[in-house]
Design a protein around this nucleic acid. Structure first.
Lengths: 298, 298
DNA sequence: GAGCCGATGAGCCTTCGTCAGTTCGAGTAC
DNA sequence: GTACTCGAACTGACGAAGGCTCATCGGCTC
């Protein structure tokens, strides 16, 4: 697969035909046709249905093209970033956070950090997958990564505590009467889940499987704030790290039985400066694993 | 640029040398060296510094590699999505939302939609840029897109209303005493901004420029929930669509003078089914442009 | 001096493009 | 109903460009 193939396929989807796409791309029509065929052959699926008037994306083609668009956009940003030069990077702290983790702890630590380093500038990436964070960390392109520990976590990772998972229910939900929710009581509930292959969706699948359950999916989202908001609206229930629940939704969140939690670690860049090490210390000082807060309130 | 070059560069960053990366990639060492050189030549920048013991990413190289990793990850997901087949797509509604827009309206509309179509499953993408949403819409890979109107908005877009922007201040901030905030009073404030090239960052820059101001950047984030939370913590101030502010943070939000707002439109897929058209009608019924809510509360 | 590293040049193989032509389906005229 | 035309995608041949390996060189460290 190549970016060229992605660009050709996206052009075909947009223009509706190979011929029109070829004109747009300033290549001959057989070139586009061959690239599309080659891509379909490599993947073993039909991305487009052939009609007498042109090509139409299939359902799997559309799903594919959404990701292809992400790849092409990232490549364009990569080029723009490189061309803009390194001037933007001076004095910057680059932090990546696994989605939903440290949602309260990180801003508190950064506030304190800013008092020590008033000119500091922070860029934060919120990643869906701890595997991707591990990869970014290994490639030394981050200053600090905050993630759930997993089998690829390097030995020099700094353990911060535990992040407890809670289920968020809709306002008026019958299970809000109890302090905690038994997982089996969620058997027939529809779920607001996270994107395919994301770590948070993996946690949900793993937890449900261990309790002999299967999720009925009502929605897939990419951000924890969205999942919590949609669950609060009653679209379904969702399982998220406790710190991802805003204060005004805490009354809709309940710990689950059996309890679900994950160890949280920070990985700091080799050769890190004073700001990174100070942030690490400030994160250590934060409170982790605060499930005791999730009792019913008046 | 190609995915192959991205993979080679990421491998070099991870392994620390061309030779080790070549072994990992099962190609000869000159192949990796040439690909890296070709990439640097094409971009006109040095992504790696040469040392006697190997290559080390430069600051611009690290920024580049972060985006390269996003591209490679998206390509991997594209392949996995295609190979998994179309079975996952049956009965699914794919919605893309421009970051920060319709944050309250969409879940309310989806709740009502679910009452009419109980088996409906929704996937939502939250995109940073209206240009990317336009592109996805033109490529017919979405069922419904919700975004700020711009010059590329197609003529058949459905106008829903206005999204008013508000500034979020830290608890105890001096400007909270007033009903509204004059932009010029924010002259020396540090800003929690959004990612480079994102639409929300574009709005901020445009608004400040029009008022003769320049932002002092304290942080860059990708999600509106994060920006609001960090502003509430006092890390800086942030400018977001009003609907992105959760209820428990409304007391920290103020409309700005001169007022900032953007028209919100929905674009529906050609040949859309009953669920899509019903969602559109439900979105029309929601309340847009609710800045009157943002007065001080006891 | 030995070993490790990246870079260079030559040669070979693969990929991508164009060109010419073919096939197929839809629409139109008779 | 048949024949013709048009527009589209696909196929095969050929040439150019890209990517790979192999051999080698230069620089640095120990």
């Amino acid at each position: 697969m190549s970016l060229r193939q992605f660009e050709y396929a996206l052009a075909v989807a947009e223009e509706g035909s190979v011929t029109a796409a070829a004109e747009l791309l300033h290549v001959a029509q057989p070139s586009v046709s061959q690239q599309i065929r080659g891509l379909e052959r490599e993947l073993g699926v039909e991305l487009f249905a052939r009609t007498p008037t042109g090509l139409v994306p299939t359902a799997v083609g559309r799903a594919f093209l959404r990701e292809a668009q992400v790849a092409v956009n990232a490549a364009r940003r990569a080029r723009a970033t490189a061309r803009a030069g390194a001037d933007d990077m001076v004095g910057e702290l680059v932090v990546a956070v696994q989605m939903g983790f440290g949602t309260r702890q990180l801003p508190a630590a950064l506030s304190a950090l800013r008092r020590r380093f008033p000119r500091l500038e922070v860029t934060v990436f919120e990643e869906p997958s701890s595997a991707e964070l591990e990869r970014l960390g290994r490639r030394d392109v981050l200053d600090l990564a905050l993630m759930a520990a997993c089998e690829q976590t390097p030995a020099d990772a700094h353990r911060l505590g535990e992040e407890e998972f809670v289920v968020v229910l809709g306002a008026g939900h019958r299970l809000l009467a109890a302090d905690r929710v038994e997982l089996r009581d969620l058997e027939r509930e529809p779920w607001v889940r996270f994107d395919h292959d994301s770590a948070l969706d993996g946690v949900l699948l793993s937890v449900l499987r261990d309790n002999g359950l299967a999720p009925a999916t009502v929605a897939r989202v990419s951000q924890t704030a969205t999942a919590v908001r949609w669950a609060a609206h009653g679209l379904g229930v969702t399982l998220v790290p406790a710190s991802a629940v805003p204060h005004d939704h805490e009354h809709l969140a309940r710990p689950v039985l059996p309890a679900v939690s994950q160890p949280v670690v920070a990985v700091i860049r080799s050769g890190a400066g004073p700001a990174e090490t100070a942030l690490l210390e400030l994160l250590r000082k934060e409170t982790w694993s605060d499930s005791a807060d999730f009792s019913p309130v008046s």
